[in-house]
Nucleic acid binder design. Structure first.
Length: 260
DNA sequence: ATGTCGATACTTTATCGA
């Protein structure tokens, strides 16, 4: 089973590129972030034509996550628990049946958190605390669970072209990394890191300042695995070639193969 | 060199968010 994550930065702007990639990459499950669309405006037909079932948690203008699945959804859940006042569409979870069990998957768009002296940074940290609490509960199910998405977290110095330049940024602040480690310490596995040891393998390059041409990137899109998913992990790769396409997203797809 | 994009609205340019 092939499971992918991609922050597409706007479904309307990216629909043709996304369909092209889906046809050639052919994932069984695709977690999308930053669809920047309400549920009503989401072009589900374009994916249903390709054999996908579609779950959307949308919002006008900003944020928004979706999951495409070749298998029907047994259940879906929208919104990260823990704060009734949080209306931002950043969390979608789904369960599908496979031979001999289920696979649970979450599509997450973790808050950026910049600027750090604004209310956005504590919102990010609080969201990470809530994510940890929620995932901790889910782990008691002992299922293969893949938490995939744009984490807006640079895990280590080897995941950024210029660590100095990012030192004070919300994506690389000690408070952020501390919470990312707390998440991993629940017993989760960073799928890409489990498959590859080389550093400077990025998933995002800014549109500005020729970042792509200079390979000035960061690795912030991750697939974290429950122990039951990690046991079945076969491979994990970054499709960096889409960054060179016409009208690219600033993020590229990351995918893994599970032996289920 | 804070140099680009995408979405939105009291729109055709400014604002926000990333």
């Amino acid at each position: 089973m092939k499971i992918a994550t991609w922050n597409i930065n706007g479904i309307k702007a990216r629909i043709e590129g996304l369909v092209t990639w889906l046809k050639q990459a052919d994932p069984d499950l695709a977690c999308l972030q930053e669809i920047k669309s309400q549920n009503e405006g989401f072009p589900s037909e374009r994916f249903e034509e390709l054999g996908y079932n579609v779950a959307v948690h949308g919002q006008k203008s900003f944020n928004g996550v979706a999951i495409l699945s070749k298998r029907p959804f047994d259940e879906t859940m929208t919104g990260l628990p823990g704060d009734e006042s949080d209306v931002q569409a950043r969390y979608l979870e789904a369960v599908v049946s496979v031979d001999g069990g289920v696979v649970r998957v979450a599509s997450i768009y973790l808050p950026n958190g910049n600027p750090v002296d604004s209310e956005k940074f504590p919102y990010k940290l609080g969201w990470m605390d809530r994510l940890r609490d929620h995932i901790k509960g889910r782990l008691s199910f002992e299922e293969p669970f893949i938490i995939a998405g744009d984490y807006n977290v640079i895990p280590a110095e080897g995941d950024v072209h210029d660590p100095q330049a990012w030192a004070g940024d919300a994506l690389f602040r000690p408070e952020t990394l501390e919470r990312f480690h707390a998440l991993l310490n629940l017993g989760l596995t960073d799928a890409y890191r489990a498959c590859h040891h080389q550093s400077h393998q990025y998933t995002f390059w800014d549109y500005q300042a020729g970042a792509w041409q200079k390979d000035n990137g960061i690795r912030i899109d991750h697939l974290l695995l429950s122990p039951q998913a990690a046991d079945r992990l076969k491979s994990c790769e970054i499709d960096r070639f889409t960054r060179g396409w016409e009208k690219p997203s600033d993020h590229v797809p990351v995918w893994l193969k599970l032996d289920v």
